[in-house]
């Protein structure tokens, strides 16, 4: 259909097409420019942008994970608590040995142990969710609601309801370091996004994931092992949450039972704003990232302008509802 168009014939039409196919990107850039103007450019200084990236980095991992799950028509409510649990487990192995209140006081662990342990926790929960949803046929909402509660409980038990602080500097540097002006966290996010992008767009598995979300029956008829693929998506998401947990504890320099609370809502909201349809089968990695940065920019901008955080909640809520409304309209029109 598009090969019938003669190239370069009508520039305004091209711009219009670009605007309508990249709404979220355009919106994001417009907001960025707008924020720049009303703050006389102060909000767009290097330091501000670094803050913006650092603040959203951990959430980005969660968003990538839950984004994939939503594309399969699922949902994952356990995201925040799994990240929190992973943060607590990784933090417990990264406390300085001479810190009296450390969970394993006096014990020295290798620096890779907290990283591996944190990711393992995430992967275990991902696998658990995946098995429940794919093979147990539980609705994703219920399965992950259950694992969310389990993760919360384990978090409290494991930490004995206290804060795990005093993490080693060489651990904290994982999240707090900079390569020139570029925060390490940004590098991780870019790598993770590229990996997921390749997975979703250039592998058989990615095609299968989109197909399952778009029409599970058609996927099955095409010979795709729907259950195995579904389980893997939850597993991958879990691994991403595990990484998020590690980066979270390294960034905060601590973890406690409150870590990760409500993150699932932020991540789901971000990918929703980024055009990931809850009707399944639709959404791009780029969209997830733009959605995340849009909400991040709103958070950042309002903090920058000193807006009462209660109003921030209102604006955020409004934007999420609007994004889903648009999504539903788009689908209603097709039918």
């Amino acid at each position: 259909m598009d090969n019938t168009k003669t190239a370069g014939s009508n520039i305004p039409v091209k711009i219009k097409n670009f605007l309508s196919t990249h709404t979220s990107l355009v919106t994001f850039i417009a907001m960025l420019i707008f924020l720049g103007i009303i703050t006389n450019g102060n909000a767009l200084k290097l330091g501000s942008l670094q803050n913006l990236v650092v603040a959203e980095a951990v959430r980005a991992f969660g968003a990538l994970g839950v984004g994939m799950i939503i594309i399969t028509r699922g949902i994952d409510l356990s995201l925040g608590q799994v990240i929190g649990l992973s943060a607590c487990v990784s933090a417990s192995f990264a406390q300085t040995a001479d810190y009296g209140s450390a969970l394993y006081a006096g014990q020295e662990f290798a620096i890779w142990l907290p990283v591996i342990a944190g990711i393992a926790v995430g992967a275990a929960f991902g696998l658990f969710n995946g098995v429940l949803v794919a093979y147990g046929n539980l609705p994703p909402f219920i399965a992950t609601l259950g694992s969310m509660s389990i993760a919360t409980g384990l978090k409290l038990i494991y930490t004995r309801a206290s804060t795990l602080g005093s993490l080693k500097n060489e651990y904290k540097i994982i999240s707090q370091g900079f390569m020139g002006p570029i925060p390490y966290l940004l590098i991780y996010v870019v790598i993770a996004a590229i990996v997921i992008w390749v997975l979703m767009n250039h592998t058989k598995q990615g095609k299968s994931i989109y197909a399952i979300g778009g029409n599970a029956q058609a996927a099955k008829v095409s010979g795709i092992n729907v259950k195995a693929q579904l389980m893997r998506v939850y597993l991958y998401a879990g691994i991403l949450y595990g990484m998020a947990g590690v980066l979270m504890s390294a960034r905060l320099g601590l973890a406690n039972p409150l870590t990760g609370n409500n993150m699932e809502l932020d991540a789901i909201a971000a990918v929703t704003v980024g055009g990931i349809s809850h009707a399944g089968g639709v959404g791009t990695v780029g969209g997830m990232m733009i959605g995340l940065m849009t909400l991040g920019l709103i958070n950042f901008g309002m903090t920058f302008l000193g807006v009462n955080s209660y109003y921030q909640l209102l604006v955020k809520g409004g934007i999420i509802i609007l994004a889903v409304y648009m999504d539903m309209r788009k689908h209603a029109r097709k039918e």
């Binding site: 778009g214 029409n215 639709v282």
Partner: peptide, 17 residues
């Protein structure tokens, strides 16, 4: 029985890309 939001070619070769 197709996957509506995917390209024609992706639908054609689904499962045997």
């Amino acid at each position: 029985s197709n996957v509506p939001d995917r390209f024609v070619m992706e639908n054609l070769w689904l499962g045997r890309e």
